[in-house]
Structures are given as structure tokens and as C-alpha cells.
Nucleic acid binder design. Sequence first.
DNA 1: AGCACA
Length: 268
Amino acid sequence: MSSLPPPPFGTPMDQSVDSDEPPPLPSDAGQTLYVQNLNEKVKLETMKATLANLFSNYGTVLSVVSHTNLRMRGQAFVSLDDVKAADKARREAHLFPLYGKAMKISFAKSKSDAEVLQKLKDQGGQDSEEFKQHKEQRLEHKKMARRGNVLRRRELEKKNRARRAAAGEIAEPEKAAAKRAQHEMPDEYLPPNKMLFLQNIPDGVGKGELESLFSAYTGYVDVQTIPGKADIAFVEYSDIPSSATARGALNGYNFGAGDKLKITFARA
DNA sequence: AGCACA
């Protein structure tokens, strides 16, 4: 309607015009994620299973690789079946407090074996040549690292980051990411605690039933109910292994009426 | 802090 000419240069408003467009994939996007700052006190197999479960909310998980040696502990590589899924997982789960520690998620620098193998499978042929090449590249990479070319690579990465920042792909402030991660992610991954938190207790199931159910597990201390809130309760054990065992055994328990019992570790 | 898969 207005006959005003368009401004000769962009205004701050321009940036929000297409804000419902999906954000562009960063230039280093791949389908394998590098996760760090994992809680090292959690047993490796537990952590891998948890990560597989968590990331399956975003796509098919091809592999989870993690090690406990000095160099690799507290980190994991998670491969998803496509880049979009990996990117979504990265954005949404970044800084999620898994077992009490905020996961840092970025794209891995190289493809995982599982990812390469899947690509080959999709192409129909079982081109094992390509897989060999993939492994050779890895060896090459190690040689380069040994020679001290790491510094050169660091420089490149720095430039790359500057480039991306200039292109507007600036990481959102960490606090905002953490807040978003907390509200979008399920609450099943609180750090282990002697105290369990029960939800979805069906009508008619009282303290007595809960006591007989939970006292069957080693380390049981007591059940704490809340007046006026019959659908939730707390169960205390003497130690974390005991509470974890009971949780493992009874989470999802079906009383035969109403929802299945939901058990998480209580917040500290 | 730390980018692997034998």
C-alpha cells in the first residue's frame, strides 16, 4: 500500500522475515555427532545404551562408539541415519544435562565406520574397496597428526569458524540452549540418586502396595507419599546401585489398572 | 581437555 521506496539497506527486521525457515546446515554437518562432557562415573555400557535411546528420538541410530581410556573418556560418537536427523539432535540435545552433566554436541570430524558401511549398503553393491579407503584415510590422518600438522589444521578451523560467524551461523548463547534443552528433553536422564521419584501411580494403589513392591529390592529404606497427591511418591534406598536396580526392574510396572508406573531418579 | 571404530 505504501509508496515508500524500499530502504537502501537491510534493517534488523529483515533477519526475522524468514525466521521460520529451517536453519541452514553448518558447513561441517555430517551424520555423526561428537558428544563430550559425559558423566564419566556412569558405566560405559549404560552410557552407550542411554545415548542410543536418547538419540533414537531423532532418527535411526547407526552406532554409538565410546571408550574409557584416558584420551577418549567422557566422549562418544553417535551416528544417525541422515544429516538432517543429526543436525536436529545436535541443536535440541546440546547442553542437555544427561546424568547431571551438560552434553556438548558437535559434528564429528570424520565419518564413522557404521556410516560408511551403511552408505555402501544403500548403494546396493558391497563395495568393500571404499571401506578400505575409508580406513586408509584414517591411518593417513594419524600420520599427519604425528608430524605436527595439527597446528596448521587448527588455523584452518579458526578461519572456518570466522567464516561461519560472518555468514550468520552464530551459536546461540549457551544459557538459552541449556534452557531449551531442558524443556524439550525428557526427564529420564537425571543423575542417579538414592531416591526414586514415582509418577502415574494408578487410583487405588496406596502406600501399602508400593511398600510391598519396592521392599523386595536390596537396600530398601522407605516409601514417602504426599498428602493430596496420590499419583506420585518417593522411594528411598540406602545407596545408588540399589535404587538403580529397583528402578531398572520396576520402571514401567503395570498394576493392571491405569497407566504404567514411571520411575525416574529424584532431583537432587 | 580429550575426534574413534582392529
